[in-house]
């Protein structure tokens, strides 16, 4: 990346703030010293390690975000104990498979968030993500438990719909 594509640190203030917050959390105490040093380090990180600009832009809807997070937490708990049971129950292991799901939204940011959340829930791992044909390939641990390939596709599309409701994309761009 050439220096000309660098953006000024103050135009990336969210990244700077997040990095400074991580610095303060790592020190474990909030004082002027840690806050200022954290800001300095954050500016240095943003300046010397530039990242490409994320193409799509989005907004945040608090209620949609609550639904997304709440549903994710519930899925996480249920799926964790399901996988634990699959590991502990006697008999042969579960029968799984790789299921391709075509997402509806073309934005890569939303695809990545959807794939990331799907990966975090036990029982499904993203094996491939193809942005150009919007297809995500998941390995599902137990197809019967997930309701077959149609059940998996339904779940992932519902997850994507929740992501889109939590972070609705802006109309243009």
């Amino acid at each position: 990346m050439s220096p000309s594509t660098r953006r000024a640190p103050w135009r990336q203030w969210p990244a700077v703030l997040v990095l400074a917050a991580i610095w303060v959390l790592l020190w474990g105490s909030l004082s002027w010293g840690t806050a200022l040093l954290g800001l300095a380090v954050a500016v240095a990180v943003v300046w010397f390690l530039p990242l490409p600009r994320v193409a799509t832009s989005w907004t945040i809807r608090p209620w949609g975000l609550c639904v997304l997070v709440g549903r994710f937490g519930a899925d996480l708990v249920v799926a964790s104990f399901q996988v634990a049971w699959l590991a502990l129950r006697p008999g042969p292991g579960p029968r799984g498979g790789v299921v391709g799901v075509r997402l509806t939204h073309p934005g890569t940011t939303h695809q990545v968030v959807t794939a990331e959340l799907a990966s975090l829930v036990p029982g499904s791992v993203v094996v491939e993500l193809r942005p150009h044909d919007r297809t995500v390939y998941l390995h599902v641990l137990d197809l019967a438990l997930a309701g077959g390939t149609d059940g998996v596709r339904r779940d992932i599309r519902a997850l994507e719909a929740r992501v889109l409701r939590a972070f609705p994309p802006k109309k243009e761009s």
């Binding site: 996480l76 996988v83 634990a84 502990l88 292991g93 791992v125 094996v127």
Partner: peptide
């Protein structure tokens, strides 16, 4: 959950299935 991950990583038959055993203790 960590214990069941140990069981899963040992018992599940192939690589992709074992990966599911990993995500469980790592997250919840």
């Amino acid at each position: 959950l960590a214990f069941s991950a140990g069981v899963g990583v040992l018992r599940f038959g192939h690589l992709l299935a074992r990966m599911h055993a990993v995500t469980k203790p790592q997250v919840l």
